[in-house]
Simulated scan of single mutants.
Amino acid sequence: MEHPKPSGRPSFRTLWREKKAVTITYILLRTSVVLVMLAQIFNRNFENVFLCVLTMGLFMMPSVLERKLDIDLPNTLEIIILLFIYAAEILGEIGAYYVTYPYWDTVLHTLNGFLCAAIGFSLLDILNRHSRARIHLSPLYLAIVAFCFSMTVGVVWEFFEFTMDQFFLLDMQKDSVVQSIGSVLLDPTGGNTPIALHNITDVIVVQGDGTQTALGLGGYLDIGLLDTMEDLFVNFIGALIFSIIGYLYVRSRGQGRFVKRFIPVANTPPVVLSDEQQTPEKEDDKT
């Protein structure tokens, strides 16, 4: 017997009863975004107005995914997603938290690795427990796929940041100031020997028209490399943490209360197959 799919968006009363914490968080964050957008309109900062509109659109993504994929996002996971979007777009970009708090970007990339691993894991886990899928993957395999999915998303995002920096000079891959460098380009013989420079206190930039500018940053300006590698490393940590959580979740057959807070589940209950049903029937040999 097929289970009926949800016919439309649930009512506010239903959301308040089943997802009270999520609804309160959503209302508070959305109200805050609207107030920020009004302030940006008053200041004629239309780029930030666009970010506010984008943020409100992203806020609706969890509920859209629930309806389209017929899944249920745990309240804890949904709240984390909403807070992540607000922290990245409103606080990070408009509030300039990325500049004010050096570790803001690091925390968000760690959380991004965790969330992307949760998405990758859930997609396979739901398929793995579906009676019609005929796929039965081990807990270790699910954890590895979740980890790889998260790292892939992290790499693609760094590709995007690099592209924006190269074509539009947006400095999405934030630069770093270092006091020591080593490069084979400094080898006077033109060989492959890296020449190291230490205790760098300033760098003078000479432009095409002969203008010389001392950067005054207290060292050499690294163009995005350290930021990119740090982002990928903390993404690695977040993905690894969730992969371990997901592995334990499957091993315990979904009994862990803590883990359930981060694992989306299908609204249609999975049908457990018997050993005979899980083994595909062999076709009769044709003579």
Results as ranks from 00 to 15, higher is better:
residue 249 Y to Q: 07
residue 219 G to Y: 07
residue 107 V to S: 09
residue 178 V to A: 04
residue 221 L to P: 02
residue 200 I to Q: 05
residue 27 I to L: 14
residue 33 V to Q: 06
residue 151 M to C: 09
residue 215 L to G: 07
residue 194 P to E: 01
residue 156 V to Q: 04
residue 214 A to S: 11
residue 160 F to K: 11
residue 210 G to N: 04
residue 179 Q to Y: 07
residue 68 K to S: 05
residue 66 E to W: 06
residue 273 L to A: 06
residue 15 L to C: 12
residue 151 M to V: 08
residue 173 Q to R: 10
residue 84 F to N: 13
residue 39 A to R: 14
residue 112 N to E: 09
residue 196 A to W: 12
residue 41 I to G: 03
residue 183 S to V: 07
residue 155 V to Y: 14
residue 8 G to E: 06
residue 1 M to Q: 10
residue 220 Y to C: 02
residue 86 Y to F: 12
residue 80 I to F: 14
residue 142 L to W: 00
residue 201 T to F: 04
residue 261 R to A: 13
residue 197 L to H: 04
residue 61 M to H: 08
residue 72 D to A: 14
residue 117 A to G: 08
residue 118 A to V: 08
residue 143 A to W: 08
residue 273 L to E: 08
residue 24 I to Y: 14
residue 32 S to E: 02
residue 56 M to H: 03
residue 206 V to R: 10
residue 8 G to C: 09
residue 129 R to Y: 11
residue 2 E to S: 13
residue 89 E to R: 10
residue 228 T to G: 03
residue 276 E to S: 08
residue 180 S to Q: 15
residue 148 C to A: 15
residue 251 R to T: 01
residue 40 Q to D: 06
residue 275 D to N: 15
residue 43 N to P: 00
residue 17 R to T: 05
residue 94 I to K: 03
residue 240 L to E: 01
residue 48 N to V: 00
residue 43 N to M: 12
residue 127 L to V: 07
residue 144 I to P: 05
residue 218 G to V: 04
residue 67 R to C: 03
residue 143 A to N: 11
residue 181 I to H: 08
residue 153 V to K: 09
residue 76 T to A: 15
residue 286 K to Q: 13
residue 262 F to G: 05
residue 122 S to A: 15
residue 215 L to C: 03
residue 242 F to W: 09
residue 23 T to Q: 09
residue 182 G to L: 05
residue 211 T to I: 06
residue 75 N to T: 12
residue 44 R to S: 11
residue 127 L to W: 03
residue 45 N to F: 03
residue 64 V to H: 12
residue 285 D to T: 02
residue 114 F to S: 04
residue 104 W to C: 10
residue 37 M to W: 04
residue 203 V to Q: 12
residue 122 S to G: 11
residue 95 G to V: 00
residue 194 P to Y: 02
residue 14 T to R: 12
residue 185 L to A: 13
residue 144 I to N: 07
residue 15 L to H: 14
residue 168 F to W: 15
residue 173 Q to L: 07
residue 149 F to N: 04
residue 23 T to H: 08
residue 139 P to I: 11
residue 214 A to G: 05
residue 51 L to P: 00
residue 214 A to I: 00
residue 37 M to Y: 06
residue 244 I to V: 15
residue 236 F to Q: 02
